[in-house]
């Protein structure tokens, strides 16, 4: 449901029903050559049970680091802050054993490039079944479940394909194998980082349909990380837009993408051309996306913003409720929302 999420301003009370995952003031600092860089800066959003949340951003927005922090795959030397409330339990400050147990069994992840994520020297079936073997499931049962998982992920002839190596699979099949692997531990949340970016459109459509089917059949939650607004618009019910390591805007996907409350979201939406009708070229935003390493003062978007004013250059806008169930980090969100 789109109306269960409330903008969390201060210690405001939360939604009617508990979110599966609450990302609460998450920060990630990575060591850089000129000191630490805060690549994720106070990011908050909820992933309700059984829904798909889209996490949109350009390069340097911190979207992938946010996902990596959730599953606990940050690079060495990374420091984190805030909370990751998983069914109310803070995973960010949990010990290694607890995090390892969560990884795969409660939260799993698929990546943009399955060829890099899969082990090239191991048969597909062995990799899909690894988590089951680790859990002490018997050999024959592992085999049976692997074939079932591959079948559910839409790998044709799964019994035979389980014996093959990743290089013998096409790009689409590899992504299906990755999905089977991710589902092997029966997770409740699937993180999908640009899962279809490297695929052709027809393959992309099939993988997205598969993700939706699995999400609905299993009551899974999906956090879909993507730069592609069209992908997010088609599968996500909630959306979080990130810019320079911070949340620019969040809310129900259809509403946010039709009537953005942040000038950045508005520019992104305008830059996506329609396919079946000829769209006039949009007035492009100037400059390149700000990066956390050189985040402008005030609102990080202000140098590119068509409606920036003095206040935007000095005062960081808080993420605040701008409409029921919607939050945006813009001093002038009401103006952006106005028809």
């Amino acid at each position: 449901m789109s109306d269960v999420r409330t903008a969390r301003t201060g210690g405001a009370p939360v939604a009617q029903h508990e979110a599966l995952l609450q990302v609460d003031g998450l920060t990630v600092d990575l060591p850089g050559t000129r000191g630490d860089v805060r690549v994720v800066d106070g990011v908050s959003f909820d992933v309700p049970a059984g829904t798909t949340v889209g996490l949109i951003g350009e390069s340097g927005s911190g979207k992938t680091m946010t996902a990596n922090a959730i599953i606990g795959l940050l690079p060495d030397g990374a420091r984190t802050g805030g909370r990751l409330l998983w069914r109310g339990e803070d995973l960010l400050h949990a010990d290694g054993a607890r995090r390892r147990k969560a990884r795969g069994h409660e939260i799993s992840m698929i990546f943009q490039d399955p060829l890099a994520a899969l082990n090239p020297t191991q048969r597909i079936g062995r990799q899909v079944g690894e988590i089951l073997r680790r859990d002490g499931v018997g050999r024959a049962e592992v085999r049976r479940r692997v074939v079932e998982l591959l079948d559910r992920a839409g790998v044709p002839d799964p019994a035979e394909r389980a014996n093959r190596y990743p290089h013998e699979f096409s790009g689409g099949l590899r992504q299906r194998a990755m999905i089977a692997l991710a589902l092997a531990g029966s997770p409740s949340l699937l993180l999908a980082d640009e899962p279809t970016t490297a695929l052709d459109v027809t393959v992309q459509a099939r993988i997205l349909t598969l993700l939706q089917t699995i999400q609905q059949d299993e009551g899974l939650s999906v956090l879909l990380v993507s730069h592609d607004l069209r992908v997010v618009a088609n599968v996500a019910s909630e959306v979080v837009v990130m810019y320079a390591g911070r949340v620019a805007e969040r809310g129900p996907a259809p509403v946010v993408l039709r009537r953005p409350a942040h000038p950045y979201t508005k520019a992104l939406v305008r830059s996506v051309p329609a396919v079946r009708t000829k769209t006039a070229l949009a007035d492009p935003l100037p400059g390149a996306p700000a990066t956390p390493a050189n985040r402008p003062a005030g609102c990080p978007f202000h140098p590119r913003c068509p409606i920036a004013r003095d206040r935007c250059r000095t005062e960081v806008p808080a993420v605040r409720e701008v409409a029921p169930g919607r939050a945006a980090a813009c001093h002038f969100a009401e103006e952006v929302l106005a028809p």
Partner: peptide
């Protein structure tokens, strides 16, 4: 070609292509 495709492959490509205006997912609740 892109608004009224004649070849079935062009139609398949257009069907697979996503548009921002396409209806979002069914809201589960």
């Amino acid at each position: 070609v892109l608004a009224a495709p004649k070849h079935e492959y062009t139609r398949a490509l257009l069907d697979a292509a996503l548009d921002l205006d396409d209806a979002g997912p069914a809201v589960t609740a």
